[in-house]
């Protein structure tokens, strides 16, 4: 992994916001992550790629504490997750927001109420501010204000993603985890969503951890890419590093037919 960083690393002196060291996760007999190391730097958009079933979601869920790990340490915002008390853990959870693949909006609540759930839980806001901030988030993610009083079942796929992103941003988190944010969106919608993530990242100073398969997203918004395979990080670095790598999986991923099409499109544009 260190060998991959041949040229001087612009990220070297930057603040590490998530530090994963030697993490092992397995289910039953099967070990999925085998001593994985990964750093995520403050203010970057990290694209996380890997074949199906390689454990991309598992790592995300391990960082979020949704699956137990067998070994290794995970530090978020300089704090080792294993050392935290329940109260400290709650404090830490305010600093991240998660966009689940299917949105995971609470189906019984309207979009606005969904966004207000974490705010009601953690913050002491007046009703007026609660409404205004929720509406502001709705506008920031590019949803029409009409959507505020709709139930998730009345929204389209793209709107669900946006609403879920608004909920993830409800507490102004430092880190946002996005699980395949553009899956299920049409190319135009996916492109708009990429732009939205980039804009929000700039405006709110977010660190974005994005699990994705979308080559367009990797080319257009990701500052750095980490590729997962065989339970470890195969390579990490900007897109150029990925293209230079001669690991077979990375070669077929970044030099496949679909990747060439994206590259060609990028060159023309």
């Amino acid at each position: 992994m260190m060998l991959e960083r041949r040229h001087t690393d612009p990220t070297k002196d930057r603040d590490v916001i998530i530090r994963v060291r030697g993490v092992e996760v397995g289910f039953g007999e099967r070990t999925i992550l085998k001593g994985l190391d990964l750093d995520v730097y403050r203010g970057e958009i990290l694209g996380f790629v890997g074949g199906s079933g390689q454990g991309k979601s598992v790592l995300t869920r391990a960082i979020l504490g949704l699956v137990p790990k067998r070994a290794g340490t995970i530090e978020v915002l300089g704090q080792n997750l294993d050392d935290l008390s329940v109260e400290q853990r709650r404090q830490l959870e305010r600093h991240w927001g998660v966009l689940f693949q299917q949105g995971a909006l609470f189906s019984a609540l309207t979009v606005k109420q969904n966004i207000q759930v974490p705010m009601r839980e953690y913050l002491n806001l007046s009703d007026r501010l609660l409404d205004e901030i929720a509406m502001l988030k709705i506008e920031m993610v590019g949803l029409n204000p009409d959507a505020a009083d709709k139930l998730p079942s009345e929204l389209s796929g793209g709107m669900i993603k946006r609403a879920a992103l608004a909920r993830a941003l409800a507490l102004d988190p430092d880190i946002v985890f996005l699980d395949e944010p553009t899956s299920g969106l049409d190319p135009i919608g996916a492109g708009e969503f990429d732009d939205l993530i980039a804009t929000l990242q700039r405006t709110l100073g977010l660190t974005v951890f994005m699990v994705t398969h979308d080559l367009d997203s990797l080319y257009s918004v990701c500052d750095r890419i980490a590729a997962l395979g065989e339970g470890k990080i195969l390579a990490e670095g900007p897109i150029e590093t990925m293209l230079e790598s001669d690991h077979p999986w990375l070669r077929s991923y970044f030099h496949g037919k679909r990747a060439r099409a994206v590259m060609a499109g990028g060159a023309q544009g």
């Binding site: 002491n124 806001l125 007046s126 507490l171």
Partner: peptide, 10 residues
């Protein structure tokens, strides 16, 4: 000027 200090901010 952040959300955790919302009451005071207002």
């Amino acid at each position: 000027w952040t959300a955790p200090h919302a009451e005071r901010v207002e």
